[in-house]
Design a protein around this nucleic acid. Structure first.
Lengths: 339, 339
DNA sequence: TGTTAGCACTCATCAACATCGAGTGCTAAT
DNA sequence: ATTAGCACTCGATGTTGATGAGTGCTAACA
């Protein structure tokens, strides 16, 4: 168990290092407000904290730097809720005042604000499309051979795909088909669409429309790719401003990771809906060795998205946690009002 | 006017520097195949070429490097059409064999292939949406207060926007409205939609639907933002591999430029439909001082997009011109087949 | 017994300096 | 007109020494 003094010193070291990115020395600490001990005392405590694994030295005679364990402890026990300035709160709210109806636009803007407010990189995973339910199905013929299939979901999301039309399909056939499908598919979540189509609608259609076979094949193919929720980035380049990323190789690895959307989903989805912090190696990814990720969910049980903020392990955890929490509330609120 | 020998030397210098990124010395040149003169002779010629402004030195006793004027001359007079390997051609064609129907998907994949093939950054400006014509207009009510307006264009593109519904609008009213609008708007290019809606449909609608006023306002607002064609990037991070961009500041400027989509349109739209090369300062942009951009158009007069490849001024012009030309043809072809 | 002053020691950083070699320009010989 | 030869330039690399921020340890102190 750590003594009060050790706690205090650990806190000061993390706070100082987060700001300065420089190893923190005993003299520096002794000059901080609230510190009444001499540098020598602090040195002794620091040696103990290092033995316990909370601190590290970059070389024998350097100041101390928090270790991953140090950050973890700080995050778990020393984080103090911060208060946001009125300015910042109003900056966040400004997006939502402009009465934006498009969820997509809303989320994009939120990501931008988060990255501005934190100076880190923001990733916003949009609500999972798969849970939305079919509201309306439509086929619009374009040419003799092609048509667009459109699915509108209950939250106003529109999916569309171009289809090949089998030869000899009359407009009447299409209309009949659309009617049948609308009847059958209303309220079906997108994730079950493929299954439902295959199992049920197929049979019914064959009874009514002669050439249904080919077009159903097209539809099945179109619905087979399960789309994940969209991924929005903001402030990717903020990483470049962090001194720990002056190394091109690290940058490259990170950017390559982010360019692979598919991995992102897995990597940044939180375990539960609270605010979660993963520090350095806890991310289980080489490119993120020196990164921490703070995630939180927003939305309701129906429609849930994820906010993730990525920064160096030397990240201003307090601030990010505060900001992300405000944003999560505001976003959830805005999204449910739209319903 | 340059002598043959000067031409040959300039060519060798550009070719060598493009590969190695190192200043080229006289001894190095003399060892090249086809060079029969001694280093001393070459040194004399190089001094002349430098006086003429085609070459530069990085310091008094360094080898030579092509100047912007040197690249310009090379591009204008020394570029020799290259032949692509069968492998590369088939790599390009592989995308189109997979019978992709979505124009968007097609363009994305093309961008990826281009950046892989060239190791530079590719920007693809999608065909301008504004010219597409309305094929079908639809309103799908979501809740009491909101609905989605959907416009399908003749090329299968789907635009959608969420609308506020005025209170007391009956389903019948909506249907009436949709019918009228479909009649009136069919074949109208998106760019004229706002105007047409304002001028004509407005009047007609008021006669038939009592509460048209509010909803038309919503529609007008939705159509007022003229969307530019979409911008696709690929291989953004390829820039990091170029030695001239080991400087973080340059990277940052470039990335910030690319993040501002709006500027991109202006910056990379070609003057005419041929292949165009802009070298360094010819781009008129600080962030692109050390970059060259090669652009080409694809598509037909109806539906025209732009391919742009960005690399360092020390770019393999021959190769890029060849690759971009093949891709432009193949893409144009594929897009017109889909019609 | 916990705290602190004092001191020897370590090590990154930086400037000064020497060395090396690739490359040049010029001159004189071919 | 070409080229061999040579002095010269300058970036890159390595060495050395001084500086200073920081440590650990010991001994004195409250």
């Amino acid at each position: 168990m750590l003594t009060n003094r050790q706690l205090q010193i650990l806190q000061v070291i993390v706070d100082d290092f987060v700001m300065s990115a420089q190893p923190v020395g005993s003299r520096q600490i002794s000059k901080k407000e609230g510190i009444t001990y001499s540098p020598a005392t602090i040195r002794n405590e620091m040696a103990d904290l290092e033995d316990l694994g909370f601190l590290e030295k970059t070389h024998t005679s350097s100041g101390r730097v928090p270790s991953e364990k140090g950050y973890r402890f700080y995050v778990d026990h020393l984080l103090q809720p911060q208060v946001m300035t009125a300015d910042e709160v109003s900056q966040i709210q400004s997006v939502f005042k402009r009465h934006i109806v498009e969820a997509e636009q809303l989320i994009k803007e939120s990501a931008n604000i988060l990255s501005e407010l934190t100076t880190y990189t923001t990733i916003l995973l949009g609500p999972d499309v798969k849970k939305h339910k079919v509201k309306k199905f439509q086929i619009v013929p374009l040419t003799e051979q092609t048509a667009v299939a459109i699915i509108v979901t209950d939250n106003g999301h529109v999916e569309n795909r171009i289809l090949d039309l089998p030869p000899g399909l009359s407009p009447g056939d299409i209309e009949k088909m659309v009617n049948i499908l609308n009847e059958r598919l209303l309220g079906i979540p997108l994730q079950d669409l493929h299954f439902k189509l295959e199992l049920e609608a197929f049979e019914v259609l064959k009874q009514h429309v002669s050439t249904a076979d080919a077009i159903i094949q097209s539809l099945l193919q179109a619905t087979s790719e399960q789309k994940e929720g969209k991924v929005y980035y903001a402030g990717k380049m903020n990483m470049l401003n962090q001194p720990e990323f002056h190394d091109l190789n690290k940058i490259r690895m990170l950017m390559e990771l982010m360019d692979r959307d598919s991995q992102i989903q897995r990597l940044f989805k939180p375990f539960d809906s609270g605010i979660q912090i993963r520090i350095g190696s806890e991310n289980n990814h080489l490119a993120m060795e020196n990164c921490s990720v703070i995630t939180a969910s927003f939305g309701n049980s129906d429609e849930q998205g994820t906010i993730a903020i990525i920064g160096p392990t030397r990240m201003d955890y307090q601030r990010v946690v505060t900001v992300i929490d405000v944003m999560r509330r505001v976003l959830s609120n805005a999204l449910s009002l739209r319903q």
